[in-house]
Design a protein around this nucleic acid. Sequence first.
DNA 1: ACCTGAACACCGTTCAAGT
DNA 2: ACCTGAACACCGTTCAAGT
Lengths: 222, 222
Amino acid sequence: MPQPPAPRKTLGRPPRISREEVVTTARRIVDTEGVDRLTMRRLATEIGSTPMALYHHVRNKEELLVLLLDDYATRTLHRPDLPAQPRERIVVAAATIHEALAACPWIVEVLTADDLMATSALWFVEQIVDGLVECGLSPERAVHGYRAIWYYTAGEIVVRVTAARRRTDDDRPTYREQVFADLDPGELPRLAQVADHWAPLTAEDTYLDGLRALVDGLLAPR
Amino acid sequence: MPQPPAPRKTLGRPPRISREEVVTTARRIVDTEGVDRLTMRRLATEIGSTPMALYHHVRNKEELLVLLLDDYATRTLHRPDLPAQPRERIVVAAATIHEALAACPWIVEVLTADDLMATSALWFVEQIVDGLVECGLSPERAVHGYRAIWYYTAGEIVVRVTAARRRTDDDRPTYREQVFADLDPGELPRLAQVADHWAPLTAEDTYLDGLRALVDGLLAPR
DNA sequence: ACCTGAACACCGTTCAAGT
DNA sequence: ACCTGAACACCGTTCAAGT
């Protein structure tokens, strides 16, 4: 994890708040009230300081969010015993990252703010890339394979979390429901056929099935 | 596309601005100045009105963004001649959606605001679901397969667009670069091995390769 | 029915000054 | 070096009133 800008060598006014305190307090706000409520002003009052004091410890709000994800990953992403078989190792490593991130509803703001590059997540990336190489891919293709897995994983989380958010703050029919209600079976027969089951079908958690399909496809000889 | 709340039956003060004008003007702002600059206030002045007048034509800003995506899809998503072979049809349909959305840098705000359910995109969804069924999947598994493809596609766009944004507004080393510089080759040998090529490797457009792998995996007998 | 003016309750960030 | 006060330049949305 990159450290604060510069180590303290010369002396000046002693710091009243630390970067760690900033991150810890931000985490408490996010956990108890949601990301929306995390503002620099709110954080400053919570910490008993002024908005500007924060800018001595984090560059800006985006960096604060990245630090928050890093902190979350360090605390919750523990290394499991991975299977020896490389294909299974890839699947379990990816599924572990996915599970940790999916349990974290404020994640979307950060996924769209930076790549997942917390030090504690790198070990999982290593396992995936290494597993792909062990299965016969070149290092280059292995990196591309990892990226495909990451796109799939990040996409699943972004789509599902935002869908869940929409459901909670509103009872009106969603845009999607309206669209499906107006479906023309002559033009779009398959969609009309499954229209009634679309909502339950897409609510099912099929992350693992898709992940296995993707890994199988990445490893298939071509 | 869902229509405005209610048809005008009784008479009152004749409308000065229309929902269409609101969307068209919003599009112009987004195209010329970026999503960040699209605010209800800016839009109102651009249209020669007041912020509150807009709320008679769109429910709120989120609905405006969804309408904007719908408008974009209707204008740019034209149906190509698809291959007869179902597996190829799936790939081309998905790639066409991907291409249209990837060309649209403000898309992330909307992808995270709603599922892609513009009427003009439904035809592509139909092609993908139908192709999967023709290849032997049950309708249920075909819907799950489409979802996997959508997760992969949306994830690729979200990750890549946000990475590109970060690059433009900043010259300092990214968080990722710092992390890779501190890599311990003893602990993470594969990542250390590819560290120097990570940036160019991940900058490559490998959407199609990953898509083909995913489709192959979804269609493989299990 | 449609539009306006004024207000509410906020934002992130910068600047200049203090200790 | 670290912190403060005041300000800049904004937000989305609501309310009450006008035509």
